[in-house]
Write a protein that binds this DNA or RNA. Structure first.
Length: 753
DNA sequence: GACTAGCGTCTGTGG
DNA sequence: GACGCTAGTC
């Protein structure tokens, strides 16, 4: 028994209810783990870092650790804080825990805090909104809301959007908040940045006035709350004995500070109250640097918390050997890894199949054909994943799946809560909850159209500016036509609020859809059918939300309306129908993290797409893309397909690209080209669509559009266009990283490659 | 003030 | 190829 244990046992029953029963379960659970996993689960209550490779049983270790801590009486459920990055991961953890622990201990509603950083901070801020300086009904701005709030701000201040693009400004604000930096503390060495910092301050002031908080604000505000409020900080530091963090490599600086503070390491305050942090992560799977994640936090954590226990989980239970070997070979090209090599007891398995299509259409056809074969061979549809780098790529795959009559399900993309009609309905709901929410106000003040045009809005904004109030409150101070039409709208909201007070949430939404005129509007619209269905689906979502007490992010007794709105902002995806249906799974590589499938297709493996051109420029960006590829490959259990296309429709234009450099980084002996590329290329030479290319092919000795060529200085490239005749023939060649060049055939010595 | 056509922008990933 | 924004018309 660890001597430190006594300290953590304070005030807890030594033998919690159900102890005997779970102890049996516990030993079963423990004996089903491998030695490293078991060591991790049963570590003494000290800070620990578990470097868990893909498919090494990370979630299992995390949840078993919690079950072990609770069922051995080292802490009450109350003392557990578990943080994840996605709602999906949080849900899975809850589900596994309730299966492992008896109902009275395993029910997360009984005091365990399990959730995403954003969800937990939201919960904290709701519970202590006064101390945090927020209204009880504060609303959460998602990224789209944030952009429109910034646009409105710039307009009000008369700032030129060209000089300060709203998206860029949003990025500036978020990046600073993620570093824990307020506008006043932002470093600015030039006028431009100084101005941006001023706008950051103005934006925050606007949010404060309107009672709204963006995503990053949730974290920053929660951090500041705990920093400033000593009794509160003490309360939570004493409460949470064990903080478990999933995907630690994805934490940004602010999240790390937040953890440090809760664990009693915030600048050395109250170390005696400190919780133990059990961090699980994999530096090779860090794919969120773009939103501020710092892999360095893994190392910082190890150093700053003097972590004595670092355990590596390297045995992979998921993939066959070839897949793992290929993934290992790929990731070895990254520098500065913490070091880890996955191995498996499963056999080598199938080779990795590589397909080169003439076009994205060709590629999609191959993928769907192959998927059909696999299904025929007995693979279930839901065990087939079609992965891509960006959401835009799903379209062509969907087209071919549809044509083949194969059920499929797309994750991500346009999310349910992002749909126009749903956002409109939610805006009404937000106004009922918080009339000061100007973003919501402007969204629906004239939707459906009710005669409130630009002039009235301008008058209203002036009035609001004069008396420093929200648009809603300023309505009373208007005169003339504006007063009449805006007054009608305000009365509509008032009526809604009055008549729906105390009603169950689904009924509130049902009424607002009717009385706002939304339903009538979409009924009259030619293609409003889908939108009406989505509005009904929103009512369903509210129904299942209300009945799902355990999932409510807030403490019991909290305003259900506010909780639902928070839920809609924080859990924008996931709420899609057909989850149970046996369908082929389509998603981005990012969305696939943490999942596994019997067969995986990684599509669009082309320079500029994967790795993406926005990242390929600098080395860090490229390494993140490589980790992304690593994540994608390690999703596969038995079969892995890699495909790319010579041409692809992008922005409505045909684009020619080279195969991804990641394909070259895989050991050739593990790969098998399929689809008879060589044979097909011989019988159907490329360059069919472009007559100029065809001519060029005839005249230029076999060179044609789509042809891979080599240039003495620029290296390998692909011909994308041709013009001119005879000795004047010029071709445009895409040399990947070297850029796009126009070359005269006569002088540039291009050789077929 | 409502509605429409045409234009430009951009799809890089998520809470 | 989709959406948002603007200018022009009713």
């Amino acid at each position: 028994m660890n001597p430190a244990l006594g300290r953590y046992n304070r005030g807890l029953p030594l033998s919690p209810p159900g102890h005997g029963q779970t102890a049996t379960n516990m030993s079963d659970l423990l004996s089903s783990l491998n030695p490293e996993q078991r060591a991790a689960v049963t570590l003494p209550p000290q800070h620990a870092l578990i470097l868990a490779g893909a498919g090494s049983g990370k979630t299992r270790v995390l949840t078993t650790r919690i079950a072990w801590l609770v069922s051995t009486g080292q802490t009450a459920p109350h003392g557990i804080l578990a943080v994840t990055f996605t709602n999906k991961a949080a849900r899975e953890m809850r589900a596994r825990l309730s299966a492992m622990l008896p109902a009275d201990l395993g029910n997360p509603a009984r005091g365990m805090w399990i959730g995403t950083f954003h969800g937990l901070c939201n919960r904290l801020l709701r519970a202590h909104h006064r101390e945090a300086g927020l209204p009880a009904t504060f609303q959460i701005l998602d990224s789209a809301d944030q952009i429109s709030a910034i646009k409105r701000l710039l307009k009000n201040l008369g700032v030129d959007e060209e000089r300060f693009p709203p998206r860029e400004l949003a990025g500036f604000v978020n990046a600073h908040k993620e570093q824990g930096i307020r506008a006043g503390e932002a470093e600015a060495y030039d006028d431009y940045t100084r101005r941006r910092a001023e706008l950051y301050a103005e934006y925050d002031a606007q949010c404060q006035r309107e009672g709204v908080a963006d995503f990053a604000e949730l974290l920053l505000r929660a951090h500041e709350l705990l920093c400033r409020n000593e009794p509160l900080r003490r309360h939570y530091q004493e409460r949470f004995r064990h903080i478990l963090v999933d995907e630690f490599q994805d934490t940004n600086r602010l999240q790390y500070q937040w953890l440090k503070l809760l664990a009693g390491r915030g600048g050395g305050q109250f170390p005696e109250h400190g919780a133990c942090i059990f961090a699980v992560g994999d530096d090779d799977q860090s794919i969120y640097a773009f939103r501020g994640a710092e892999i360095g936090n893994l190392r910082n954590f190890e150093r700053e918390f003097e972590v004595a226990n670092v355990i590596r989980l390297e045995q992979n239970y998921r993939s066959h050997g070839n897949i793992l070997d290929a993934a290992n070979a790929l990731i070895r090209n990254n520098r500065g890894r913490l070091g880890k090599n996955l191995w498996t007891e499963a056999g080598a398995g199938e080779p990795i199949r590589v397909f080169e299509g003439f076009s994205d259409d060709d590629e999609a056809r191959f993928v769907v054909d192959e998927a059909r074969e696999l299904i025929r061979a007995g693979v279930s549809r839901r065990q087939l994943a079609l992965l891509y780098r960006s959401n835009a790529q799903s379209r062509i795959l969907e087209y071919h799946l549809l044509k083949a009559g194969m059920p499929y399900r797309v994750y991500g993309g346009l999310r349910f809560f992002d749909r126009q009609e749903v956002r409109h309905a939610l805006a009404y709901l937000r106004l009922i909850a918080n009339p000061d929410d100007d973003t919501a106000f402007l969204r629906v003040v004239n939707f459906p159209a009710r005669g409130i045009g630009g002039r009235s809005i301008e008058a209203l904004q002036e009035a609001a500016h004069r008396v420093h109030s929200s648009l809603y409150n300023a309505a009373a101070g208007l005169s003339g036509r504006a007063a009449a039409v805006v007054g009608n709208f305000v009365r509509l909201i008032e009526t809604l609020r009055r008549e729906t007070a105390g009603l169950p949430l689904p009924e509130v939404i049902g009424q607002l859809i009717e009385k706002s005129g939304l339903r009538a509007h979409y009924l009259a619209e030619k293609e409003g059918g889908d939108r009406l269905e989505n509005l009904d689906e929103l009512i369903n979502a509210a129904t299942s939300f209300s009945s799902d007490e355990g999932m409510a992010p807030n403490d019991p007794g909290a305003d259900p309306l506010a909780s639902f709105l928070a839920h809609a902002s924080l859990e924008a995806g996931e709420h899609q129908a057909g989850e149970s249906e046996d369908a082929v799974q389509l998603m981005t590589v990012h969305a696939a993290k943490g999942l596994e499938f019997d067969a995986v297709f990684i599509t669009g493996l082309e320079q500029g797409l994967f790795p993406h051109e926005n990242s390929a420029a600098d080395k860090q960006g490229l390494e993140e893309e490589r980790r992304l590829m690593y994540v994608a490959m390690t999703r596969a259990r038995e079969r892995l397909y890699l495909s790319h296309a010579q041409t692809r429709l992008l922005h409505g234009q045909t684009r020619y690209s080279l195969p991804s450099l990641f394909l070259e980084e895989l050991p050739g002996e593990l790969l098998r080209p399929v689809g008879g590329r060589a044979a097909r290329a011989a019988e159907a030479p490329f360059a069919s669509q472009d007559p100029a290319g065809q001519e060029c092919a005839e005249r230029a000795g076999g060179l044609r559009i789509g042809q891979n060529v080599r240039h003495a200085r620029f290296g390998l490239g692909v011909i994308v266009a041709a013009e001119g005749q005879g000795g004047d023939t010029r071709v445009q060649v895409n040399f990947g990283a070297q850029g796009m060049k126009w070359l005269a055939l006569e002088y540039a010595k291009l050789t077929a490659a």
